[in-house]
Design a protein around this nucleic acid. Structure first.
Lengths: 216, 216
DNA sequence: GTTAGCATGTAAGGAGTTACATGATTTT
DNA sequence: AAAATCATGTAACTCCTTACATGCTAAC
């Protein structure tokens, strides 16, 4: 028991790590963080929060009611509906870190990768590198599969199917290229901090951000 | 009852449309067709076949046992395990066409789009255009969301989160660009066949295939 | 002789969605 | 006065995966 709600758990713990929040806001931030990749509905969020509560990873904090435009609103229950603000417990933080340090397929598969990546600033350098490399290898395998299949079925496919394969292949190739840049950055950042085994905060990816936009 | 197994139903019917096949081969062809986008397991395939059978959309045909390397293998049950070869019925073909002519969100959302696209050669021109445009609009909305979110939270994000957003945005932009090329092709192909309302086979996407690789 | 590939299936469960229910508040 | 947005939640259901069970044949 405990490993339910795959991606959401990690994402929610990560966001609450920054600051306490209520459900509605949590979901908005979640979907803006991962906007291009996926979206969650309330039907996933609220049950997930319930479970996190049950596991003692989060607690309800004072329902701090942010002033509803006009500031001076009397005590008790005014300004909108009473919001339930959640915050991380010590165990929650610990669990978050242990989730972050997982570097198996669970971290680099399609749905999970983007969330893990989003919290790389809190992930130690070794794990970051292993996840990036794991994903690159995974995509490379997929590419091999696609290339073989295109070689085998050559000419026998209609133009739409062919175009789909071509487009799919190109997308995967692009992501591999992106990953390779990131991996190189990680390696170079490691040179800077010599043999240190420590975890520190974001190495501000200089160079790469520019490099990957070069062909604008 | 009847609308189960979302994407698979369409994909299986589509493949069986080309030629009869047994489950194992079906799955291989499925995964090679959609290799870059998704993969199915047997746990999805076999129950799906069962349901298609129940709906009368496919039937078992003679277990044509392809010669196992050496040709002359005696009658009955030789050469590997008895394979169950399925083929499309008339109702199956009809149902397949009706699935193909759906052009709502069910056709242009992430998981479904690639399968629908793969069978565009059997889809009529109007539907193709509506699906392509629907998806483009959908992605455009997603882009607007991402851009707004990036404008709002500017500077307050660590470099990894930022890089993720940038990469996500770029991917979506690329797909929009790809779609726009395809849409233009469809429109030009329509000019060729003047006012005709008919469905014909693949307009061999000339020009486009080259154009989208131009920046090689 | 053992691994890899061919071939078919089932049971249990995980992750998430849709649609509903409810109600306040702000904007148009 | 209507519509959008804020806010929380639940029940039912979908789609798919994992892990298991079984056994045969080809290649190393």
């Amino acid at each position: 028991m405990s490993r339910r709600h795959g991606v959401m758990t990690l994402a929610v713990l990560g966001l609450l790590h920054e600051s306490p929040m209520h459900g509605y806001e949590l979901r908005k931030r979640l979907n803006s963080m991962l906007g291009a990749f996926r979206a969650f509905s309330y039907g996933t969020l609220y049950p997930c929060l319930k479970e996190l509560l049950g596991n003692g990873w989060i607690v309800e904090s004072d329902p701090v009611q942010a002033a509803p435009t006009a500031t001076a609103t009397p005590p008790a229950l005014s300004g909108r509906r009473a919001r339930i603000v959640y915050q991380l417990t010590a165990e929650g933080k610990e669990h978050f870190q242990s989730l972050l340090s997982e570097s198996g397929p669970t971290a680099w598969e399609d749905e999970q990768f983007s969330v893990h990546f989003a919290f790389f600033a809190r992930t130690d350098a070794e794990t970051r590198l292993r996840i990036l490399e794991g994903r690159r290898t995974r995509l490379q395998e997929r590419l091999d599969g696609v290339r073989q299949s295109m070689a085998r079925t050559r000419e026998r496919l209609d133009s739409y199917t062919l175009e789909l394969q071509r487009h799919g292949q190109e997308s995967v190739e692009r992501e591999v290229h992106w990953l390779e840049g990131l991996i190189e950055d990680e390696r170079q950042a490691r040179q800077g901090t010599t043999t240190r085994g420590g975890d520190d905060d974001a190495p501000s990816a200089r160079g790469r951000t520019a490099a990957s936009t070069e062909d604008n």
